[in-house]
Design a protein around this nucleic acid. Sequence first.
RNA 1: GGCCCCGUCGUCUAAUGGUUAGGACGGCACUCUUUCAAGGUGUAAAUACGGGUUCGAUUCCCGUCGGGGUCACCA
Length: 448
Amino acid sequence: MSTVITRFPPSPTGLFHIGSARTALFNYLFAAHQKGVMHFRFEDTDRERIKKEYENDILDGLAWLGIPIGDSEIVRQSERGDIYRKHIKSLLEKGHAYEAEEGKDDPSQKVIRFKNPNASITFKDHVRGDVTFDTSELKDFVIGRSIDEPLYHLAVVIDDHEMGVTHVIRGEDHISNTPRQILILEALGFTRPEYAHIPLILAPDRTKLSKRHGATSLAEYRAMGFLPSAIVNYLALLGWNPGNDRELYTLEELIREFSIEKVHKGGAIFDLEKLKWFNRAHMDRMSQSTFTDYILPELDRALKQRGIEIDTSIFEKLLPIIRERIATINDLRELIEAGEFDYYFKLPQLDPRKIPQKATSSEEAREHLGRVHELLATLEMKEYADHARLKNVIWPYASEKGRGSVLWPLRYALSGKEKSPDPFVILSVLGKEESLSRIKTAQSKLSA
RNA sequence: GGCCCCGUCGUCUAAUGGUUAGGACGGCACUCUUUCAAGGUGUAAAUACGGGUUCGAUUCCCGUCGGGGUCACCA
């Protein structure tokens, strides 16, 4: 059994599209599952539209996702003119192609047309079964702007052959390209690869995902703070399913499980909410240090913007709080920008009217704060590290007096917020001195 | 419009002749709880329609309808 060779041949005419990323992923999963390889090349025969920055964006995106493309020099169609010329000549000589009318853009050149045998082509598709086309509708299609300038279909066929590609896995939008490529390949005497056309990723309106639907490029999702592992996981499950209820996979696990026969036929709508859920799930599985690396740059940047310098001791205490409140880095940024973290670093603004819990009086609140202060003062500084310990000290009193009436003023005194994590966590982050001071401040506001 | 492909909850999907049609996201409710978040429990929600075949169809066949892709000297 020969080794499986798939390929991912993007055209650098735009940013790395999320759908393109999934095609790359499927090609990689399919090949890796069978210990084969996925080859890479740039299809850059359209000189008008290609850009170096797009090449870099695609390469960066692939590396970021963890999809390897090998170490060898990158193949570019633009650098393979000799190879194509040789084959075009042979096609011409054998009568499979001919020079036709003058080029639209370059009247000094004659375009090359393929002599269509008008055959009925049936090919086996791993996703769809047998697909049949009557190629006579294709007429004698153009395969080169000139002898020196091959067009897409010709170049693809030649490159796939030279790279030894055994399986062509690509988007469903290529399904109607397949018969004409088969025609060319048969004229050239090449063996036919196997095909698999995977369903498209759709926008909520069920049409092809495009700019007007929001983010389409991988780079945008990366900028939103999604994890590569979450994107890989989500993309793999869009249009493919292992046949059971499991949803969380690493790339390695996907390689083990992947099977092209289980790829679906219908297009799948891209759901940002579910992607967020995957991101959170992958985030939850991160080690403390990985998570730190994940959030630190953004945390630091967003906090600095508010004039806050973060120190490591506070940062470590904040980690669990952050972890349970965000699904992506975007969430973290929004939280910080909304001022939800300010009170860990600077004194909150207190509105005296908000200190007592609704339906309790200022006097009660002041009394509770006083008692809580006494209780907390009995603890050693280092005991503040353990918020369970803090809870144990206050809980009996709070339970006796009514938890809300005791805990709300405490939490508000510490945070100045109507919504926040629980007071024990905040106490723990702030430490003994700062906590007691804030409680005193709140108390004094009430006695006025 | 021609050609090609597709059609299970709102969304991603499981179940290929026999299930109370399962799971996940989202929604809702409850719970935990001082608030928020997270968590736990529960709940609503689907086989596009019409014909066949069959003792029995989500599943097989035909038609209808619906959706998508593609029809370049782009890829």
